[in-house]
Design a protein around this nucleic acid. Structure first.
Lengths: 155, 155
DNA sequence: ATGAGTGCAAAGGCTTTGCATTAGG
DNA sequence: CCTAATGCAAAGCCTTTGCACTCAT
């Protein structure tokens, strides 16, 4: 079992299937073909996908099944629902798999991609946020950070 | 450098009405009673409100008028639509009026409140984000930062 | 008068759900 | 076999829109 020293710990591509199967099993769910297609679609994209985008890459999957399976995968802790604008919801693999990261959102076309900032800044940020949150009686679970701007294609 | 003072510039409460009226006038819109009620509601709340919350404090305003007026106020640059979870959209006065800030979102009940972090951190953050964004071909317009956690009431 | 603003109800668009069918263990 | 999973279509829910009425200019 090879161990890595990267701070961006994440599940290796080849192990994602196994990881997902395990997480699903933990909540008594099966790793069906539909779910496999969705996970593979998200794995290949390496960025949050909307339902329409997911359906484009999963032949024969009904829209309702996509929604239902994404909910199951979300409950299993494998997929996260990303809220960017008010259009479509987007889904991505959890940080367990992808590592901690943030998003760039194109305010023109809605494209979303991943970005990472230095660990040092993440820690500073967490410290500052936890402080101001607790001052207001909040218990911080995590933070969410997005870059809003114009993507390469829209520029 | 002597000009590093706090950048929390905002419109004084008493001047909000005038500011809003001006901004509306700039796009050829009137400051009607419905719009006034909404602005006063948002001013009093000092946090992003959902449509149901706004309707509770604006007697006699139709839901459709609330949506329509909020769109107008948004176009006038007076109100901003805040996307937190996938439930209801929330609205708040723009940063012109409220100053730059971020949000705390309760993942249990959906409550949203404002938070501010030190200017120094804002600047570091902007620098780091602009850098990673441009590396991906994005032109950053601004950033969005939320604390997700459990609020005082839900704890 | 005359067009903006409003209320009410209907329509839209994304998401969820009911139900009969199919498939995996 | 037996229950979970799926497809299809209908229903839900927030939001937007059409239309007639009202109000301010």
């Amino acid at each position: 079992m090879p161990s890595t020293k990267h701070t961006h710990k994440h599940v290796e591509a080849a192990d994602i299937a196994h990881h997902v199967a395990t997480k699903l099993d933990e909540i008594g769910q099966r790793y069906t073909s539909g779910r496999r297609m969705i996970v593979e679609s998200l794995t290949a994209a390496k960025r949050p996908l909307s339902i329409p985008e997911i359906l484009e890459t999963t032949t024969g999957l009904a829209q309702s099944s996509a929604y239902r399976n994404l909910t199951v995968l979300e409950n299993a802790g494998v997929v996260v629902r990303v809220i960017t604008t008010d259009e479509w919801a987007r889904f991505e693999l959890s940080e367990d798999i992808m590592g901690h990261h943030h998003h760039m959102v194109c305010s023109k076309c809605g494209w979303v991609d991943d970005v990472r900032i230095p660990d040092a800044m993440e820690h500073e940020l967490d410290a500052a946020l936890a402080k101001v949150a607790s001052k207001a009686g909040f218990v911080m679970a995590h933070h969410r950070l997005d870059v809003v701007g114009i993507c390469k294609a829209c520029k």
